[in-house]
């Protein structure tokens, strides 16, 4: 390496100046980016004007927005929206992983079942699924656990005691999410090199361990970005549960503007919270992506090691 550098680069290193002299591209003159500056000025002007117009318009009722932003009912609705999103997303990812693995199984029955699940839960609109879950008691008034093939009943509940608006909302959102997540996770698993599966097999690793230690961590790089999308969709999809009388953020907002008719201001309250949640999710997604992309960047040792690695 050193010898190579000497034969090629010695005159320039000793002279302190490039052998290319005045042609050295490092000293090239950079032209003023006129059009970029113009574009910047125009865009900045438009943005500032837009903000001023909205802020100064009394019809938006910003004072009302400020009044209701931390209203107890709003915060209550916010917790429901957040809690429902997190729980439904968690169950959706978990169940989606299961369906994805089933879908990739060589066993026809397992993969067929998974395909049927996807077909149904992706095909039926979420709103309809929520209403179905909510009205489960009209379809199946009683829920029982019994020994198969006509055996004795071990336990029985009235469906209405199990299916509350909350459980209906969780079931509906989670199963719908699971169907979408299954395809995202399957895509991620397929993106991992076949040789990785073989290497783990050759060393006698169990399938579960290979999935957990070898395949999933590599698949995560392509699973995380669309999952971020799904999470954001989920936060907004929870607003659908207002139809089954769950008091989420949007429902609480509606309840208030039905009384005081400040529709726009209260919707702005909801928008503010939704945007805030989504911003936080974006930050979280960035952290997760950096975590799974660490093998693309420097070694654990730091910058000095990285330079050594580059040689």
């Amino acid at each position: 390496m050193a010898a190579f550098a000497n034969t090629l680069g010695s005159p320039s290193v000793e002279g302190g100046d490039s052998a290319a002299g005045e042609h050295d591209v490092a000293r090239a003159h950079r032209p003023l980016p006129v059009w970029r500056i113009v574009a910047w000025v125009v865009l900045a002007y438009i943005c500032i004007q837009a903000i001023l117009i909205v802020a100064r318009n009394p019809n938006f009722g910003w004072d009302v927005v400020g009044e209701y932003l931390f209203h107890p009912n709003i915060l209550q609705g916010l917790t429901v929206t957040l809690g429902l999103s997190v729980v439904a997303m968690f169950l959706g990812v978990l169940f989606g992983l299961l369906v994805a693995v089933m879908r990739m199984s060589p066993d026809r029955l397992l993969s067929g079942f998974a395909a049927g699940f996807l077909w149904f839960f992706r095909g039926v609109p979420l709103l309809v699924q929520l209403i179905f879950w909510y009205n489960m008691s009209t379809l199946f008034p009683e829920f029982q656990i019994a020994v198969p093939f006509g055996g004795p009943v071990l336990a029985a509940w009235e469906t209405n005691t199990i299916i509350s608006p909350l459980t209906a909302a969780i079931f509906g959102l989670a199963l719908h999410e699971a169907a979408y997540m299954a395809e995202i996770i399957r895509g991620g698993l397929l993106s991992v090199d076949r040789g990785q599966v073989e290497a783990s097999q050759a060393f006698g690793m169990s399938r579960g361990r290979a999935l957990r230690r070898i395949i999933l961590p590599q698949a995560m790089r392509s699973i995380v970005p669309p999952t971020g999308n799904q999470f954001i969709s989920m936060v907004k999809a929870t607003s659908l549960v207002s139809v089954i009388a769950m008091s989420d953020l949007l429902y609480s907002v509606q309840a208030i503007y039905n009384r005081n008719f400040e529709v726009i201001s209260l919707l702005l309250v909801a928008v503010t919270w939704y945007l805030l949640i989504v911003s936080l999710l974006n930050v979280g997604q960035g952290f997760i992506e950096r975590h799974y992309g660490r093998s693309e960047r420097g070694p654990v040792g730091g910058k000095a090691d990285a330079e050594e690695a580059a040689q």
């Binding site: 073989e198 060393f203 654990v300």
Partner: peptide, 29 residues
């Protein structure tokens, strides 16, 4: 799997685990 654990294998395309350091690769099994 137990039978395979006595046999080491080296592949044409290395098949190292790309998300693990050299040391973690050696330690995994």
């Amino acid at each position: 799997r137990r039978q395979r654990r006595k046999i080491g294998m080296v592949f044409q395309h290395f098949a190292l685990y790309p998300h693990m350091t050299a040391l973690e690769n050696v330690l995994e099994a």
